[in-house]
Each structure stands twice: as C-alpha cells, then as structure tokens.
Amino acid sequence: MSYLGMVTEIVPFTAHNGDKGQANYARPTTKEMVGGVVLIHHMPGWDDWIQEAARKLAHYGFACIAPDLYFREGPGSPDDCAARSRAKGGVTDEQVMGDVAGAMAFLRAQANSNGKVAVMGFCSGGRQTYLAACSLNHVDAAVDCWGGRVIVEDPADITPARPVAPIELTSGLNCPLLGIFGNDDANPSPKQVNDTEAVLKKLGKTYEFHRYDGVGHGFFAVDRPAYKPEQAKAAWQKVIDFLDKTIGPRARFS
C-alpha cells in the first residue's frame, strides 16, 4: 500500500561550497519518522521526469529531495540551465558530491527524518549515485538505475570534471547497493554490468543487481519510447522494497 497524502515544495538547501541551492522536496504527510532519498537527475536536468520520480518516492512513503544540480546556471528555466551546463562540459564530480552531501544534510535536519538517507539516480545520475555511495560518508543505501561510465573504457571520458572512473572507488562502498539495468542497454552494456558485479563480489560488498530482458536504457521514463510497463513496474517494486529494507520502514496508508 502506498501513502496517499504528500506535500511537495521547492526548498533552498546548502550545496557545495556553501552555495544556496534549490531542490524539490516531496514527503508523505505522515507523523511517522521516514527515511529520505536524494534523487539525482540525469543530464537533461531538473525536468518533469525527476519531479515525477520524487513524487513517486513520497507516494511510497519516503521523503525525497531532488536537487537542481544546475542551479548555478540560473536564472532561467531548467532546460535553459541544462543547456548552459552542457555547453560548459557538464558539472564536475566534486561539485555534485558536495551538492548531494548538502541534500543529505537537509533530509537529516527535517523533523520527519528517521536519520537514514539513500541516494538514487538515473543515467548520469546513476553514475553519480555509485560515486556518492563510494565516496561520501553516512550514505545508508544507494540505487543506481542504469548509470553509464561506472566502468570507463574510453580514456577521453576521464576529464578534469570527471577525473576518476567510479569503479576504481568501489573499495570505499560501505552501504547496500541496488542496481537496475536493461539487457538491451549499450551504456552500461550487459558486459559492463557483469564486470561491475564481479568487482563488487570480489570486494565482498552488499549489493543486488536486477537485469531485465526486452528493455534498454531508461525504461522507467513513461513519456519516451523506451518505457516498458511490465519491466518498469517490476523494477520499481524492487526499488521500493530495497529502500523499505535499508532506510525504512516506509510510511504506509492504513
């Protein structure tokens, strides 16, 4: 059962270097203490999809903060800010980690917080989730949805903005990791997912990977052709169950 009441609002939060960021903060209107999720958007930015996903997590009984990683490019609409960021080569890993840490602190400072915080992201946000889980302190769980370039095969993908392949930091992972992947995806490819799993297994990390046939990249996105309802529904259930187990219990309507 989901939780039927929620509140969403745009909130300020203290981001990397003390910058004043903005985020969508969605949470169930329960008096129970709940776990929180920092939800990291993909390259196109703070779009309709990420707001919808934030509300979905609140609907399932978690507090969720979705920070706008491009707020420094404002003022402007989220798509214009994303375009400006893209033209500069995208945000740096260091800055994103600082923003995620700030969003985590925001969640833990709320009166409804049970003290547990997960990080979750899609696509490039999935990669940044893996990075956060391996490099930030006090991450209680991580959900990587089809994050590409966790394993870097093209040396050109190692840049000053993104100087380290996340897989190289796996030894630092100290929370449970959930991975959601499509077997038709090219980035990450099934081989890259297998290779990532091999590293996690070798290092004795706690993880669960779920791979889905008949889907490619981004199969949760209901407004794109990649959407596959059967696999998306099954995978969302894995996400909710995982978060319930790791940062829950989630709020339930009764």
């Binding site: 375009a83 490619g216 996105a221 794109r224």
Partner: peptide, 19 residues
C-alpha cells in the same frame, strides 16, 4: 551547440539538439 542526448521535451529516447 549541437548534441545528441536525451531530450528535455521531445517524446524520444534520444534527440538531436541544437541551441
């Protein structure tokens, strides 16, 4: 600026964007 990525608005998995 020309790129090929997930679009912001078009209902496509990937799109050619020009700014």
């Amino acid at each position: 600026h020309v790129y090929f990525d997930h679009p912001y608005h078009a209902p496509l998995d990937h799109a050619l964007g020009i700014d």
